[in-house]
């Protein structure tokens, strides 16, 4: 359970995972921020206003799956590093996961890195397919990795 060990269980995760038909249509965000905390940079980061909060800043974010374009602009703005963008339409059998990365060295495109699950367990090697790290992101790089499609909701970190 998330509140006991920091690991989001599949049941806890399910409300924030987009439905299968939306996933099939291409990139979309998964916002793994499940607690009401006084935080809201994700809301203003989204250019198409897909992230809402019920009443205000102290609520958890709610994503309108159909509005989200999967652009990934919200990823580096989240201080909780809780936003991921998944793309199930990558290549047959393979998907991508994009995430924030704030360690050194920053991997390069094409590099092989170790994929980790939510508990930090090594789940195999994956390839970095994109690195976005402009000055505006202030040292929070957004890394996209290519993963087997069935691992898309399991892999949540990398070790370089």
């Amino acid at each position: 359970m998330l509140k006991n060990d920091g690991i989001i269980s599949p049941e806890e995760l399910s409300p924030v995972v987009p439905p299968a038909d939306r996933l099939a249509r291409g990139p979309v965000a998964i916002i793994e921020c499940l607690q009401d905390i006084p935080c809201d940079p994700c809301v203003s980061a989204c250019p198409v206003k897909a992230i809402k909060m019920k009443e205000g800043i102290t609520d958890r974010p709610l994503l309108e799956f159909d509005t989200c374009t999967g652009c990934g602009l919200c990823i580096p703005k989240c201080p909780g590093l809780a936003i991921f963008v998944v793309n199930m339409k990558h290549t047959p059998g393979m998907a991508t996961v994009s995430m924030s990365y704030e360690q050194l060295p920053v991997p390069e495109k094409g590099q092989e890195v170790t994929a980790l699950d939510r508990s930090g367990k090594d789940v195999g090697k994956v390839k970095v397919v994109r690195v976005v790290n402009p000055p505006g992101y202030d040292h929070t790089a957004v890394i996209t990795i290519e993963v087997p499609a069935d691992q898309v909701n399991n892999i949540r970190a990398i070790r370089v």
Binding site: L34, R118, G120
Partner: peptide, 16 residues
């Protein structure tokens, strides 16, 4: 239960 914000906990948990 974890005292701080759970997003911070998950962040270090997934790094092992």
């Amino acid at each position: 239960t974890i005292g701080g914000y759970l997003v911070h906990a998950s962040k270090i948990r997934r790094l092992g």
